[in-house]
């Protein structure tokens, strides 16, 4: 970016291409139902990045700047198309700098919660819900019966729900 601002055409070209990729991901995740708009929005944002590149402060993280512009363009798009979209707050951080912390925290939380369950239910939930195995696969892997897995998942989740609700109170 800094080289691009200084006038190096190749650096600028590379930067815009990288941004285009990222913006495409960013917009398509949020506009999954209107793929046609994504390309327009990517181009429009690229033009904004290009025209307003002065507004980047080299002392600040580039991703934060890019993200602020992309978010602005997305909101502007929603406003124009008169659509109200609710965006989960977590989505706003995924282009920002330190992103892994939430995922790691969530993983640790899940781990802690699961440990409170009986071993069989733990296994059943882990394999079917986290690892992504099917019920027969999970049954084969653990030696439990298929209905045992189903019941384990059901009871375990119910128990977890109760735990979470209890800890919120």
């Amino acid at each position: 970016m800094i080289a691009g601002m200084a006038g190096h055409a190749r650096a600028h070209n590379m930067l815009l291409s990288l941004c285009a990729e990222r913006l495409k991901q960013y917009f398509s995740r949020r506009l999954s139902d209107r793929v046609a708009d994504v390309e327009d929005l990517v181009q429009e944002t690229l033009i904004a990045i290009h025209q307003r590149r002065e507004s980047y402060n080299p002392g600040l993280p580039f991703t934060a700047w890019l993200h602020a512009i992309a978010h602005y363009k997305l909101v502007d798009h929603f406003r124009r198309s008169r659509l109200r979209a609710t965006l989960p707050i977590d989505d706003f951080f995924d282009l920002a700098v330190n992103d892994e912390s939430t995922a790691i925290n969530a993983a640790a939380d899940i781990d802690k919660l699961l440990k409170s369950l009986p071993l069989k239910q733990q296994e059943a939930i882990r394999l079917t819900r986290l690892t992504g195995l099917t019920v027969p696969e999970a049954a084969a892997a653990t030696g439990q019966s298929e209905s045992g897995i189903k019941v384990g998942v059901h009871r375990g989740l119910k128990q977890l729900m109760a735990t979470i609700k209890g800890s919120e109170r």
């Binding site: 691009g4 601002m5 200084a6 006038g7 190096h8 055409a9 190749r10 600028h12 070209n13 815009l16 690229l46 033009i47 290009h50 590149r53 002065e54």
Partner: peptide, 8 residues
């Protein structure tokens, strides 16, 4: 956009 780039 990258051609005729004006430095800022």
């Amino acid at each position: 956009m990258a051609t005729n780039l004006r430095p800022v």
